[in-house]
Every structure is written in structure tokens, then in C-alpha cells.
């Protein structure tokens, strides 16, 4: 999720900006010191590869298709430090040339997608590769990377704008899990194709994989729903702590005795209205954006 400029508040930008700068400076040093002889052109060309890969439409279901986001595939193939730098470069170019994500908002976007996103993909991949389950690791990594960096982005947006509701969180979380699973499948498919082309293919762990992937998706979905039910409370807690809860619109649907099993009908009505409104707004603005030429700067 590329956050544009004009959404995030100064404290969020400042703190994530500091974290991103440190992370990128350190990653650049580590990536520059790797043993890959052709590292500079390698990172650059793979960055361009991610842009080009977005042109390859990947069918993910009837009538639906997605495209590769790339963080997990880069982490698995060139390591986390180099992948962080490549992803940062991609985000900078998206912001400057394609207006995808803001310039000041790079502070948050770089942290979410190039640092957190890359490491969340790398850690499961590495851990599960060690017990000879690299495919599951790659899938899980890609899913977690997309899911959690989007969750963090949404948290940044809602802390800054203070307009999110509980229902919206659940709605968005579902969306993110689906996006993450799609990224997992595409990354895995691309990775397997690369292995085949490089003659390193081995089909031995294929069969139990589908079950494992299904199980992993369901587990993450459940965990996600569990957290979604608690997340706004956490957010409000932080807002109160940070002394910024003087907003004109406090969370209306928060009940101290709230329980997942005991859905309040009023809350459900409000939040689904919110979700519908959001969908409608997205549809309208999507149509608008289709008619507005999206420029590319030189």
C-alpha cells in the first residue's frame, strides 16, 4: 500500500522517517559489502524487473488477476539487505516518476515495504529453508510481508487521520490477507519457474505443500481476525497515551465489554455502512483515475 503525501501526521512521518533512514543507510552498507561481484547492476536490473513483472498478469481465480509485488522474491533471491535497497529504489522511483506514493511519505512507505516487508518475507523463508521447506517459507513470507506491511500502513493512516472504525479494520484485514495470499502464490510460482530454468528444480516436497499452504492461510486469517477485533482498542490506547485523542471524532463503536462472539448489531450496521461507503468511494475514484492520464516524468 503506497501512502500518498498529505495523509500522514508529522509525528508519524518523523518517527518512521528516522527508522527508515537508519535502516536504509545500514542496509546500503551491508548490501555494498556482499560478495556478489556484479551487485550494482544486479540490484538495478532486478529493480527494473519488478516494474516489468507488473505487466505480467497472473490469473488467480475466475475473472481476477494479480501481479507480483516483488519484495519476497527479491529477499529470497538476493538476500534481505540487497532486497531492501532494491525495494527502496523502486519506491523512490514510483514516487518521483509515477506519483505512486508520496515523497515525504517515503518515510513510512520505505519502512513498511522495503524494510519490514522484506525482513518479514526473509525470516520465514530462511527458517523454513533450514528444515527443508523453502516453498512453504517463501509462501508464508510473501503473505506475511504483504499483510503486515499493509496493516502497518493502515495503522499509520488511521493514527494520522483518526477516521478508521473497527468494521473497516476487519474489512481491510480481509482484503490484505487475500492480497498477501495472492502475492504468496505468484512469488512461489515465479520462484519455481526460476528454479526450473536454472536447472535446480526438485519436485519432492510438492504434494504436502498445498495442504500446508492452505493451513497457513487459514491460520493467518484466524490470527488476523483475532487481532482485528482488538486493534482499534490498541490504537485508541496509543492515541490516549500520546495525548492526541482530542479528535472531534473518537471511535464511536468501542465498547469496553466488547467480545468477538457477542456481536453488537448497531456496530455491525455502522461498520458495514462504512465498508459500503468505502467501496463506493473507491469505485467512483477508480473510475475518475481511469480518465485522468497518469503522467510519467522524465
Amino acid at each position: 500500500m503506497h501512502i500518498p503525501d498529505g495523509i500522514l501526521s508529522a509525528p508519524i512521518l518523523a518517527s518512521f522517517g528516522a527508522a527508515s533512514s537508519l535502516g536504509v543507510i545500514y542496509s546500503a552498507r551491508k548490501a555494498e559489502a556482499t560478495t556478489l561481484a556484479h551487485r550494482i547492476p544486479l540490484l538495478g536490473v532486478l529493480g527494473a524487473f519488478v516494474f516489468a513483472a507488473q505487466m505480467v498478469n497472473f490469473p488467480v481465480g475466475p475473472g481476477a488477476s494479480g501481479h507480483l509485488l516483488g519484495g519476497a522474491l527479491l529477499a529470497a533471491t538476493i538476500g534481505p539487505w540487497a532486497a531492501s535497497i532494491t525495494m527502496t529504489a523502486i519506491l523512490i522511483i514510483q514516487a518521483l516518476m509515477f506519483q505512486d506514493g508520496g515523497v515525504l511519505a517515503l518515510a513510512a512507505n520505505v519502512f513498511n515495504m522495503a524494510i519490514l516487508g522484506v525482513w518479514l518475507a526473509w525470516l520465514p523463508f530462511r527458517a523454513l529453508s533450514k528444515i527443508n521447506q523453502p516453498r512453504l517459507g517463501l509462501f508464508l513470507g510473501a503473505l506475511l510481508s504483504v499483510l503486515l506491511s499493509a496493516v502497518l500502513a493502515l495503522a499509520q493512516v488511521s493514527l494520522s487521520s483518526r477516521v478508521m472504525t473497527q468494521g473497516l479494520w476487519v474489512f481491510c484485514l480481509g482484503l490484505f490477507i487475500v492480497t498477501g495470499a495472492i502475492e504468496g502464490f505468484i512469488t512461489l510460482a515465479a520462484w519455481e519457474a526460476i528454479e526450473r530454468l536454472e536447472g535446480r528444480a526438485s519436485g519432492q516436497t510438492r504434494k504436502p505443500m498445498h495442504l500446508a499452504i492452505l493451513a497457513a492461510s487459514i491460520a493467518i486469517m484466524l490470527i488476523g481476525v483475532f487481532f482485528a477485533s482488538g486493534a482499534p482498542d490498541v490504537l485508541e490506547y496509543f492515541q490516549t497515551q500520546a495525548g492526541i485523542s482530542s479528535s472531534a471524532t473518537p471511535f464511536p463503536a468501542l465498547m469496553p465489554d466488547y467480545e468477538w462472539a457477542n456481536l453488537n448489531v448497531e456496530w455491525l450496521r455502522k461498520s458495514s455502512a462504512g465498508a459500503l461507503g468505502l467501496l463506493a468511494a473507491f469505485a467512483i475514484s477508480f473510475l475518475i483515475s481511469k480518465f485522468v492520464p497518469r503522467g510519467q516524468q522524465d
Binding site: Q99, S161, T249, S285
Partner: peptide, 20 residues
Amino acid sequence: AQAAYVLPFSFAIAAVALLR
């Protein structure tokens, strides 16, 4: 006109604010 490209994202936030 190009700047309107950002509107889908901020429309979503504006929509929620409006609903409230």
C-alpha cells in the same frame, strides 16, 4: 489533472470522515 491521481486514496479517507 495529473494530481487527481492521488484522489482514490484520499477519497476513501474522506468518505469515512463524511460518514461520521
